[in-house]
Design a protein around this nucleic acid. Structure first.
Lengths: 169, 169
DNA sequence: CTTGGAAAGTCAATAACGCTGACTTATGCT
DNA sequence: AGCATAAGTCAGCGTTATTGACTTTCCAAG
Protein backbone atom coordinates (compact mmCIF):
# COMPACT_ATOMS: atom_id res chain seq x y z
CA UNK A 1 0.00 0.00 0.00
CA UNK A 2 2.96 2.32 0.39
CA UNK A 3 5.71 0.74 -1.66
CA UNK A 4 5.44 3.01 -4.66
CA UNK A 5 4.33 0.22 -6.96
CA UNK A 6 0.98 0.17 -8.72
CA UNK A 7 -1.92 -1.11 -6.70
CA UNK A 8 -4.83 -3.19 -7.85
CA UNK A 9 -4.78 -6.46 -9.71
CA UNK A 10 -5.20 -5.37 -13.29
CA UNK A 11 -3.62 -7.02 -16.28
CA UNK A 12 -1.04 -5.45 -18.49
CA UNK A 13 -2.25 -1.85 -18.78
CA UNK A 14 0.08 0.84 -17.54
CA UNK A 15 -1.15 1.60 -14.08
CA UNK A 16 1.82 3.72 -13.21
CA UNK A 17 -0.47 6.69 -12.75
CA UNK A 18 -2.02 4.92 -9.77
CA UNK A 19 1.15 4.58 -7.72
CA UNK A 20 1.07 6.00 -4.22
CA UNK A 21 3.68 8.51 -5.31
CA UNK A 22 1.53 9.74 -8.17
CA UNK A 23 -1.45 9.97 -5.88
CA UNK A 24 0.51 11.94 -3.34
CA UNK A 25 1.62 14.37 -6.00
CA UNK A 26 -2.01 14.78 -6.97
CA UNK A 27 -2.92 15.46 -3.36
CA UNK A 28 -0.24 18.09 -3.06
CA UNK A 29 -1.24 19.63 -6.36
CA UNK A 30 -4.79 19.97 -5.05
CA UNK A 31 -3.53 21.63 -1.90
CA UNK A 32 -1.34 24.19 -3.61
CA UNK A 33 -3.78 24.85 -6.43
CA UNK A 34 -6.67 25.46 -4.07
CA UNK A 35 -4.61 28.10 -2.36
CA UNK A 36 -4.16 29.86 -5.68
CA UNK A 37 -7.80 29.33 -6.48
CA UNK A 38 -8.96 31.30 -3.45
CA UNK A 39 -6.12 33.81 -3.25
CA UNK A 40 -7.50 36.50 -5.56
CA UNK A 41 -11.02 36.75 -4.16
CA UNK A 42 -9.61 36.48 -0.64
CA UNK A 43 -7.59 39.62 -1.21
CA UNK A 44 -10.65 41.54 -2.32
CA UNK A 45 -12.78 40.17 0.49
CA UNK A 46 -10.22 41.13 3.11
CA UNK A 47 -10.51 44.76 2.05
CA UNK A 48 -14.23 44.84 2.72
CA UNK A 49 -14.15 42.72 5.88
CA UNK A 50 -15.92 39.76 4.32
CA UNK A 51 -14.70 36.19 4.20
CA UNK A 52 -14.88 33.16 2.01
CA UNK A 53 -18.26 32.24 3.39
CA UNK A 54 -19.73 35.45 2.02
CA UNK A 55 -18.17 34.79 -1.34
CA UNK A 56 -19.65 31.31 -1.54
CA UNK A 57 -23.10 32.53 -0.62
CA UNK A 58 -22.92 35.33 -3.18
CA UNK A 59 -21.64 32.98 -5.84
CA UNK A 60 -24.44 30.48 -5.51
CA UNK A 61 -27.19 33.05 -5.08
CA UNK A 62 -26.00 34.61 -8.30
CA UNK A 63 -25.85 31.23 -9.95
CA UNK A 64 -29.32 30.19 -8.90
CA UNK A 65 -31.32 33.36 -8.26
CA UNK A 66 -34.41 32.82 -6.18
CA UNK A 67 -32.92 29.84 -4.42
CA UNK A 68 -34.33 29.13 -0.99
CA UNK A 69 -32.33 29.12 2.21
CA UNK A 70 -32.65 25.36 2.56
CA UNK A 71 -31.43 24.83 -0.96
CA UNK A 72 -28.40 27.01 -0.37
CA UNK A 73 -27.78 25.16 2.87
CA UNK A 74 -27.49 21.83 1.11
CA UNK A 75 -25.26 23.22 -1.62
CA UNK A 76 -22.87 24.88 0.80
CA UNK A 77 -22.95 22.02 3.26
CA UNK A 78 -23.05 24.16 6.38
CA UNK A 79 -25.53 24.52 9.19
CA UNK A 80 -28.46 26.87 9.17
CA UNK A 81 -26.89 28.94 11.92
CA UNK A 82 -23.62 29.37 10.07
CA UNK A 83 -25.30 30.39 6.87
CA UNK A 84 -27.69 32.65 8.68
CA UNK A 85 -24.95 34.74 10.18
CA UNK A 86 -23.46 35.35 6.75
CA UNK A 87 -26.82 35.95 5.14
CA UNK A 88 -27.78 38.44 7.80
CA UNK A 89 -24.77 40.61 7.11
CA UNK A 90 -25.31 40.35 3.37
CA UNK A 91 -28.95 41.38 3.66
CA UNK A 92 -28.04 44.09 6.16
CA UNK A 93 -25.41 45.48 3.82
CA UNK A 94 -27.87 45.52 0.96
CA UNK A 95 -26.17 42.91 -1.19
CA UNK A 96 -28.81 40.22 -0.95
CA UNK A 97 -32.56 40.51 -0.97
CA UNK A 98 -34.72 37.97 0.79
CA UNK A 99 -38.25 37.76 -0.59
CA UNK A 100 -41.11 35.79 0.88
CA UNK A 101 -41.93 32.81 -1.29
CA UNK A 102 -44.84 33.51 -3.66
CA UNK A 103 -46.34 30.07 -3.39
CA UNK A 104 -45.07 28.84 -0.04
CA UNK A 105 -44.86 31.81 2.26
CA UNK A 106 -42.57 29.98 4.69
CA UNK A 107 -39.80 30.05 2.14
CA UNK A 108 -37.46 32.95 1.55
CA UNK A 109 -36.14 33.36 -1.95
CA UNK A 110 -32.72 34.91 -2.25
CA UNK A 111 -31.62 37.39 -4.89
CA UNK A 112 -28.61 39.60 -5.38
CA UNK A 113 -29.27 43.31 -5.44
CA UNK A 114 -27.43 45.44 -7.99
CA UNK A 115 -24.83 46.11 -5.35
CA UNK A 116 -24.56 42.37 -4.70
CA UNK A 117 -24.21 41.67 -8.41
CA UNK A 118 -21.44 44.22 -8.62
CA UNK A 119 -19.47 42.52 -5.87
CA UNK A 120 -20.11 39.09 -7.35
CA UNK A 121 -18.78 40.35 -10.62
CA UNK A 122 -15.65 41.79 -9.06
CA UNK A 123 -14.94 38.58 -7.19
CA UNK A 124 -15.60 36.20 -10.01
CA UNK A 125 -13.70 38.32 -12.51
CA UNK A 126 -10.64 37.93 -10.31
CA UNK A 127 -11.14 34.22 -9.91
CA UNK A 128 -11.96 33.64 -13.55
CA UNK A 129 -8.87 35.52 -14.68
CA UNK A 130 -6.69 32.97 -12.97
CA UNK A 131 -8.76 30.05 -14.21
CA UNK A 132 -8.68 31.39 -17.72
CA UNK A 133 -4.91 31.72 -17.64
CA UNK A 134 -4.57 28.19 -16.30
CA UNK A 135 -6.99 26.81 -18.86
CA UNK A 136 -5.25 28.57 -21.68
CA UNK A 137 -1.85 27.33 -20.58
CA UNK A 138 -3.05 23.77 -20.25
CA UNK A 139 -5.25 23.56 -23.33
CA UNK A 140 -8.69 22.06 -23.97
CA UNK A 141 -7.78 18.42 -23.55
CA UNK A 142 -6.11 19.01 -20.21
CA UNK A 143 -9.16 20.97 -19.12
CA UNK A 144 -11.43 18.09 -20.02
CA UNK A 145 -9.30 15.76 -17.93
CA UNK A 146 -9.20 18.26 -15.09
CA UNK A 147 -12.98 18.41 -14.99
CA UNK A 148 -13.29 14.66 -15.25
CA UNK A 149 -11.02 13.97 -12.29
CA UNK A 150 -12.61 16.67 -10.15
CA UNK A 151 -16.05 15.28 -10.81
CA UNK A 152 -14.90 11.80 -9.85
CA UNK A 153 -13.51 13.17 -6.59
CA UNK A 154 -16.79 14.60 -5.39
CA UNK A 155 -19.10 12.96 -2.93
CA UNK A 156 -22.10 11.57 -4.81
CA UNK A 157 -24.39 14.10 -3.23
CA UNK A 158 -22.15 16.99 -4.19
CA UNK A 159 -21.84 15.59 -7.70
CA UNK A 160 -25.60 15.75 -7.99
CA UNK A 161 -25.62 19.36 -6.81
CA UNK A 162 -22.83 20.15 -9.24
CA UNK A 163 -24.42 18.58 -12.31
CA UNK A 164 -27.80 20.06 -11.43
CA UNK A 165 -26.24 23.52 -11.43
CA UNK A 166 -24.21 22.81 -14.52
CA UNK A 167 -27.08 21.50 -16.59
CA UNK A 168 -29.42 24.21 -15.37
CA UNK A 169 -31.75 23.21 -12.55
CA UNK B 1 -16.25 39.61 -20.21
CA UNK B 2 -19.56 38.10 -19.10
CA UNK B 3 -21.43 37.44 -22.28
CA UNK B 4 -20.73 33.72 -22.46
CA UNK B 5 -18.69 34.00 -25.63
CA UNK B 6 -15.02 33.10 -25.88
CA UNK B 7 -12.54 35.67 -24.78
CA UNK B 8 -9.17 36.47 -26.19
CA UNK B 9 -8.24 37.34 -29.72
CA UNK B 10 -7.07 34.04 -31.13
CA UNK B 11 -7.61 32.86 -34.66
CA UNK B 12 -9.79 29.97 -35.65
CA UNK B 13 -9.09 27.44 -32.90
CA UNK B 14 -11.97 26.31 -30.78
CA UNK B 15 -11.78 28.48 -27.71
CA UNK B 16 -15.12 27.36 -26.41
CA UNK B 17 -13.41 25.94 -23.36
CA UNK B 18 -12.53 29.49 -22.33
CA UNK B 19 -16.06 30.83 -22.12
CA UNK B 20 -17.12 32.39 -18.84
CA UNK B 21 -19.61 29.58 -18.45
CA UNK B 22 -16.93 26.93 -18.80
CA UNK B 23 -14.73 28.77 -16.34
CA UNK B 24 -17.53 29.04 -13.85
CA UNK B 25 -18.15 25.32 -14.12
CA UNK B 26 -14.49 24.76 -13.44
CA UNK B 27 -14.67 27.02 -10.40
CA UNK B 28 -17.64 25.12 -9.05
CA UNK B 29 -15.97 21.81 -9.77
CA UNK B 30 -12.98 22.93 -7.72
CA UNK B 31 -15.25 23.92 -4.87
CA UNK B 32 -17.18 20.67 -4.72
CA UNK B 33 -14.16 18.48 -5.38
CA UNK B 34 -12.13 20.10 -2.63
CA UNK B 35 -14.89 19.27 -0.21
CA UNK B 36 -14.61 15.62 -1.18
CA UNK B 37 -10.86 15.85 -1.08
CA UNK B 38 -10.80 16.82 2.58
CA UNK B 39 -13.86 14.89 3.74
CA UNK B 40 -12.24 11.54 4.57
CA UNK B 41 -9.27 12.80 6.59
CA UNK B 42 -11.55 15.35 8.28
CA UNK B 43 -13.70 12.54 9.62
CA UNK B 44 -10.68 10.78 11.11
CA UNK B 45 -9.26 14.01 12.53
CA UNK B 46 -12.54 14.90 14.19
CA UNK B 47 -12.39 11.68 16.20
CA UNK B 48 -9.02 12.55 17.68
CA UNK B 49 -9.73 16.26 18.19
CA UNK B 50 -7.27 17.40 15.55
CA UNK B 51 -8.00 19.62 12.60
CA UNK B 52 -6.86 20.15 9.07
CA UNK B 53 -3.91 22.19 10.21
CA UNK B 54 -2.51 19.19 12.05
CA UNK B 55 -2.98 17.06 8.97
CA UNK B 56 -1.14 19.49 6.76
CA UNK B 57 1.77 19.75 9.16
CA UNK B 58 1.99 15.97 9.47
CA UNK B 59 1.79 15.53 5.74
CA UNK B 60 4.64 17.85 4.91
CA UNK B 61 6.86 16.75 7.78
CA UNK B 62 6.44 13.20 6.51
CA UNK B 63 7.14 14.33 2.99
CA UNK B 64 10.27 16.27 3.87
CA UNK B 65 11.67 14.82 7.08
CA UNK B 66 14.07 17.11 8.86
CA UNK B 67 12.45 20.24 7.48
CA UNK B 68 12.90 23.36 9.57
CA UNK B 69 10.08 25.37 11.05
CA UNK B 70 10.71 28.26 8.69
CA UNK B 71 10.62 25.95 5.72
CA UNK B 72 7.33 24.46 6.83
CA UNK B 73 6.01 27.95 7.40
CA UNK B 74 6.61 28.94 3.82
CA UNK B 75 5.12 25.74 2.45
CA UNK B 76 1.98 25.98 4.51
CA UNK B 77 1.64 29.72 4.08
CA UNK B 78 0.59 30.47 7.64
CA UNK B 79 2.10 32.58 10.37
CA UNK B 80 4.63 31.34 12.84
CA UNK B 81 2.15 31.67 15.66
CA UNK B 82 -0.47 29.55 13.92
CA UNK B 83 1.95 26.82 13.06
CA UNK B 84 3.52 26.90 16.48
CA UNK B 85 0.29 26.13 18.24
CA UNK B 86 -0.27 23.09 16.04
CA UNK B 87 3.32 21.97 16.34
CA UNK B 88 3.22 22.28 20.10
CA UNK B 89 0.29 19.90 20.39
CA UNK B 90 1.89 17.47 17.94
CA UNK B 91 5.16 17.44 19.85
CA UNK B 92 3.30 17.25 23.15
CA UNK B 93 1.29 14.28 21.92
CA UNK B 94 4.42 12.53 20.78
CA UNK B 95 3.68 12.59 17.05
CA UNK B 96 6.44 14.95 16.01
CA UNK B 97 10.00 15.23 17.21
CA UNK B 98 11.84 18.55 17.12
CA UNK B 99 15.60 18.19 17.05
CA UNK B 100 18.09 21.00 17.37
CA UNK B 101 19.83 21.64 14.07
CA UNK B 102 23.17 19.85 13.87
CA UNK B 103 24.91 22.64 12.00
CA UNK B 104 22.88 25.69 12.94
CA UNK B 105 21.68 25.24 16.47
CA UNK B 106 19.01 27.90 16.14
CA UNK B 107 17.09 25.69 13.76
CA UNK B 108 14.73 22.93 14.79
CA UNK B 109 14.44 19.98 12.45
CA UNK B 110 11.11 18.22 12.44
CA UNK B 111 10.53 14.47 12.20
CA UNK B 112 7.55 12.21 12.65
CA UNK B 113 7.80 9.67 15.44
CA UNK B 114 6.51 6.16 14.82
CA UNK B 115 3.22 7.26 16.29
CA UNK B 116 3.20 10.24 13.96
CA UNK B 117 3.97 8.06 10.99
CA UNK B 118 1.10 5.79 11.92
CA UNK B 119 -1.35 8.68 11.94
CA UNK B 120 0.06 10.06 8.71
CA UNK B 121 -0.46 6.68 7.14
CA UNK B 122 -4.05 6.42 8.34
CA UNK B 123 -4.87 9.87 7.05
CA UNK B 124 -3.20 9.57 3.71
CA UNK B 125 -4.59 6.10 3.11
CA UNK B 126 -8.06 7.56 3.45
CA UNK B 127 -7.27 10.47 1.16
CA UNK B 128 -5.45 8.34 -1.37
CA UNK B 129 -8.30 5.87 -1.57
CA UNK B 130 -10.55 8.58 -2.91
CA UNK B 131 -7.89 9.93 -5.23
CA UNK B 132 -7.18 6.47 -6.52
CA UNK B 133 -10.85 5.85 -7.26
CA UNK B 134 -11.11 9.18 -9.04
CA UNK B 135 -7.93 8.57 -11.02
CA UNK B 136 -9.04 5.12 -12.02
CA UNK B 137 -12.44 6.37 -13.13
CA UNK B 138 -10.96 9.16 -15.16
CA UNK B 139 -7.98 7.37 -16.68
CA UNK B 140 -4.36 8.35 -17.22
CA UNK B 141 -4.91 11.03 -19.82
CA UNK B 142 -7.49 12.83 -17.73
CA UNK B 143 -5.10 12.63 -14.79
CA UNK B 144 -2.34 14.24 -16.82
CA UNK B 145 -4.67 17.08 -17.73
CA UNK B 146 -5.84 17.40 -14.16
CA UNK B 147 -2.27 17.82 -12.95
CA UNK B 148 -1.46 20.24 -15.71
CA UNK B 149 -4.34 22.57 -14.95
CA UNK B 150 -3.74 22.46 -11.20
CA UNK B 151 -0.12 23.36 -11.70
CA UNK B 152 -1.06 26.28 -13.89
CA UNK B 153 -3.44 27.52 -11.21
CA UNK B 154 -0.82 27.82 -8.50
CA UNK B 155 0.90 31.00 -7.48
CA UNK B 156 4.45 30.97 -8.86
CA UNK B 157 5.91 30.67 -5.40
CA UNK B 158 3.69 27.73 -4.56
CA UNK B 159 4.52 26.11 -7.87
CA UNK B 160 8.16 26.26 -6.94
CA UNK B 161 7.45 24.64 -3.56
CA UNK B 162 5.37 22.01 -5.32
CA UNK B 163 7.89 21.05 -7.96
CA UNK B 164 10.69 21.10 -5.43
CA UNK B 165 8.82 18.56 -3.35
CA UNK B 166 7.82 16.55 -6.37
CA UNK B 167 11.27 16.31 -7.86
CA UNK B 168 12.85 15.65 -4.48
CA UNK B 169 14.42 18.62 -2.75
C1' DC C 1 34.54 40.33 20.62
C1' DT C 2 30.66 43.01 20.07
C1' DT C 3 26.66 43.69 17.61
C1' DG C 4 23.08 42.99 14.24
C1' DG C 5 20.02 39.86 12.55
C1' DA C 6 17.99 35.29 11.87
C1' DA C 7 15.37 31.15 13.84
C1' DA C 8 12.42 29.77 17.04
C1' DG C 9 9.19 30.11 20.68
C1' DT C 10 5.78 32.59 23.47
C1' DC C 11 1.89 35.71 25.25
C1' DA C 12 -2.20 38.32 24.46
C1' DA C 13 -5.92 39.86 21.82
C1' DT C 14 -8.95 39.43 17.85
C1' DA C 15 -11.69 37.54 14.12
C1' DA C 16 -13.91 34.28 10.65
C1' DC C 17 -16.20 30.30 10.40
C1' DG C 18 -17.90 26.31 11.69
C1' DC C 19 -20.47 23.44 15.20
C1' DT C 20 -24.44 21.84 18.72
C1' DG C 21 -28.60 22.49 21.18
C1' DA C 22 -32.73 24.72 22.15
C1' DC C 23 -36.30 27.53 20.87
C1' DT C 24 -39.82 30.64 18.28
C1' DT C 25 -42.66 32.06 14.44
C1' DA C 26 -45.13 31.37 10.47
C1' DT C 27 -47.08 28.43 7.39
C1' DG C 28 -48.52 24.22 4.83
C1' DC C 29 -50.79 19.96 4.78
C1' DT C 30 -53.33 15.98 6.38
C1' DA D 1 -56.67 20.48 15.19
C1' DG D 2 -52.23 18.92 15.03
C1' DC D 3 -47.93 17.62 13.03
C1' DA D 4 -44.22 18.86 9.98
C1' DT D 5 -41.50 22.11 7.49
C1' DA D 6 -38.86 26.60 6.46
C1' DA D 7 -36.74 30.08 8.46
C1' DG D 8 -34.71 32.71 11.94
C1' DT D 9 -32.59 33.37 16.47
C1' DC D 10 -29.95 32.95 21.01
C1' DA D 11 -26.21 31.17 23.61
C1' DG D 12 -22.00 28.87 23.88
C1' DC D 13 -18.02 26.52 22.09
C1' DG D 14 -13.79 25.06 19.22
C1' DT D 15 -10.44 25.44 15.42
C1' DT D 16 -7.79 28.02 12.62
C1' DA D 17 -6.06 31.96 11.38
C1' DT D 18 -4.54 36.81 12.19
C1' DT D 19 -1.39 40.92 14.30
C1' DG D 20 1.77 42.87 17.53
C1' DA D 21 5.21 42.64 20.92
C1' DC D 22 8.66 40.29 23.17
C1' DT D 23 12.45 36.76 24.61
C1' DT D 24 16.06 33.37 23.94
C1' DT D 25 19.44 31.40 21.37
C1' DC D 26 22.77 31.55 18.17
C1' DC D 27 25.44 32.69 13.72
C1' DA D 28 28.29 35.80 11.33
C1' DA D 29 30.16 40.10 9.89
C1' DG D 30 32.53 44.10 11.24
Amino acid sequence: MSDGRPTGGYGGESLLFLTDEQLRQGIEAMFFAYRGFTADPDRILAEIAYGRAHHRAIHFINRAPGTTVNNLLSILGVTKQSLNRVLRTLVGDGLVESRVGPVDKRERHLYLTDKGKALESTLSDAQRARMRAAYRDAGPEAVAGFRQVLEAMMDPEMRRAYTRLRDGS
